[in-house]
Design a protein around this nucleic acid. Structure first.
Lengths: 135, 135
DNA sequence: ACTTGAGTTCGCCTATAGGCGAACTTCTAG
DNA sequence: CTAGAAGTTCGCCTATAGGCGAACTCAAGT
């Protein structure tokens, strides 16, 4: 089973425009170009210099958006995505990336929880003593 | 009991310099001026145009830093702090602000947890179907 | 032929949270 | 008096994540 099958694609001939990718990923065309500049997605150009992407790009953007929600930057997402082969026939790599995201997310939750627990002591208001003031 | 007593201050005559506040709050003098511009703290000027703060400022900065750790912006901190009277004799207001922070933190934890749970389904990779591609 | 829509690049603008250097003033000490 | 430490304002720089308009190309439809 390919990732495309899994996602319900009728394998498109690797030629989605910026606008199509944008609409499918739920972002603006502007953002799509931005993502390309930052290496979240890669594409090629047609004869008229217009960007062309594969459905792969949509998945990558969605993964990056998901990553953003657990606090990753686009750069970090780009790094994770760099390890996933283009339009992989191997759904496992995408699932693995998703699971890494979940792991990271859980870690962030734990960290935030720890921070809150620490704050709950209100200690951050303490130890505010300092030297003699002056006129 | 005043907040100053609680925090162990020998009530200083309301005249800490930028540098003193910075050192006490664990930030740079630069940051202190920044916080003043953004209304996190307020101060007055001495005869030489130098900023003078009360110990109050240190508490406010510490609270803002704590707030940052649970995801609040400086503006949001400034808003919370705006509700606390200067060098209040009422420790309760500071404790209450701290508790509000903890509540907000817990909410953020819950939200993040929910996001992670949602991501765990890997659904964010689904529904990537879109219209017919073109050359 | 003309218009329209979608694409392109370029570069400036936003907000957030400061860092940093320049140039200048003020204060304090020796 | 003079040096140094610390203060001041101003403005540019950083990173992150884009928004937006200008000016232009390109392909398609009527």
């Amino acid at each position: 089973m390919t990732i495309a099958d899994h996602l319900g694609f009728e394998m498109s001939p690797a030629s989605l425009s910026v606008g199509q990718v944008a609409a499918a990923a739920g972002v603006t065309a502007n953002a799509v170009r931005f993502y390309e500049r930052y290496g979240v997605i890669t594409g090629h150009r047609n004869s008229g210099n217009a960007r062309r992407f594969t459905v792969d790009a949509i998945c990558r953007i969605k993964l990056a958006l998901a990553a953003q929600r657990v606090g990753l930057t686009l750069k970090e997402s780009a790094d994770i995505l760099a390890g996933i082969p283009p339009l992989s026939r191997d759904l496992q790599q995408w699932v693995a990336a998703g699971e890494e995201l979940v792991r990271i997310g859980r870690t962030r939750v734990d960290q935030l929880q720890a921070t809150v627990n620490e704050l709950a002591t209100l200690d951050f208001l303490q130890n505010t003593r300092q030297g003699r003031p002056q006129a």
